[in-house]
């Protein structure tokens, strides 16, 4: 089935890299206090998903372009998300003079 020389990078290593990156991003999103850093951590998790998509577009037994195109869509959605998120952050900062997660507890009960 596998013609030609085997691809030198093992599939498991790429997936392990993405998994560790995802966990680092998750930890950052759960513990960091600054809103910008929480957004950055979410971007890290999206990046980990992108690595998986690109890896499977190359390293599956039926390679195709679909993974790369999906990752392009993910990058676009991430850009839109970060633009709206930072605009919200600016609006919050103007209203409350803070950019920390712990100060945004108006709806807490």
């Amino acid at each position: 089935m596998a013609g030609g020389a085997p691809f030198p990078i093992p599939t498991g290593s790429v997936l392990a890299l993405a998994a560790i990156l995802f966990c680092i991003g998750l930890y950052g999103a759960l513990t960091k206090r600054n809103l910008i850093i929480v957004l950055v951590s979410i971007e890290l998790m999206l990046n980990a998903a992108n690595i998986n998509l690109v890896a499977f577009s190359k390293l599956s037994d039926k390679p195709s372009l679909n993974g790369q195109i999906f990752s392009l869509f993910t990058i676009t959605v991430a850009a839109a998300e970060i633009a709206v998120g930072l605009a919200l952050l600016l609006a919050i900062f103007r209203l409350r003079k803070t950019s920390e997660v712990k100060d945004l507890d108006v709806h807490k009960w």
């Binding site: 596998a2 013609g3 691809f7 599939t11």
Partner: peptide, 12 residues
């Protein structure tokens, strides 16, 4: 998980 051997003969 047993990952499939990547098929390098296909040009994506």
């Amino acid at each position: 998980t047993p990952w499939p051997q990547p098929d390098t003969s296909v040009d994506v």
